[in-house]
């Protein structure tokens, strides 16, 4: 969703700012390349619906946190910056948690502790440390949204495949036609189990690196 918005506004963006937004989608992807924020990708991707809610929450927290830290960057004493960052993120996550509880209570139940764990999602901390502390609010915002979107597409891809292959549904609607089952097709119950999330991400990384040879680990 955020990607479409950005495409329309891109004319306004300088090429440098545009890069901030697009790099994390591909060759700087927080999950496939930087290896940040893995925990939540795996745990809440059994269904597409929870993945979407989680993705939106992370985009919101990350964009706002980057802006706030960037605004405060000159006043935060370096020695206590970690705890300041954690406090900002935790406050934003509390907001998100309360909103989720109010509007999509059932999804909030399913996400259980993983909403709280956005606080320790290392993408957010990592981007705050690496980018927002040195840059102006607007680039920081773009960087935050870009990285969160890079996180979101992997999340949605994993959620899509796990729900489609595991339960034969998408967003709770049946998509595998009935005659397939009559012909002997069966849902692969294995996809719902936790280990398959890891293997799905492994395969996504494989395909991603196969397409983009620069990313191959030489060591």
């Amino acid at each position: 969703m955020s990607e479409n918005d950005n495409n329309q506004k891109e004319v306004l963006f300088s090429p440098k700012n545009k890069k901030l937004l697009t790099n994390p989608l591909g060759k700087d992807n927080p999950i496939n390349v930087q290896v940040l924020g893995i925990c939540s990708v795996l745990a809440i991707t059994v269904q597409l619906r929870t993945s979407i809610v989680m993705a939106i929450s992370v985009v919101a927290v990350m964009g706002l946190a980057n802006v706030i830290i960037s605004l405060l960057r000159k006043t935060i004493p370096p020695r206590i910056r970690i705890i300041v960052q954690l406090t900002v993120i935790a406050s934003l996550v509390i907001l998100v948690d309360q909103v989720l509880k109010a509007f999509v209570y059932d999804v909030s139940r399913q996400l259980s502790v993983f909403v709280g764990l956005i606080i320790t999602n290392c993408i957010i901390m990592g981007r705050l440390e690496a980018f927002a502390l040195q840059n102006k609010p607007w680039p920081s915002f773009l960087d935050g949204i870009g990285n969160a979107a890079g996180y979101a597409w992997v999340l949605l891809a994993v959620g899509f495949f796990r729900e489609l292959l595991g339960s034969g549904t998408l967003m709770g609607y049946n998509v595998i036609p009935g005659f397939m089952y009559e012909m002997g097709y069966e849902d692969n119950g294995f996809m719902i189990l936790p280990p398959m999330a890891l293997i799905t991400v492994g395969i996504i990384i494989w395909v991603h690196r196969y397409k983009d040879r620069d990313l191959i680990d030489i060591s």
């Binding site: 496939n32 189990l193 936790p194 398959m196 890891l198 293997i199 990384i205 680990d217 060591s219």
Partner: peptide, 18 residues
């Protein structure tokens, strides 16, 4: 080659999980 490093680690972790 494309599976080296991160990719294979994920898949092994999955197998350990199983």
């Amino acid at each position: 080659a494309p599976l080296r490093g991160l990719g294979i680690t994920f898949i092994i972790t999955g197998l350990m999980g199983i």
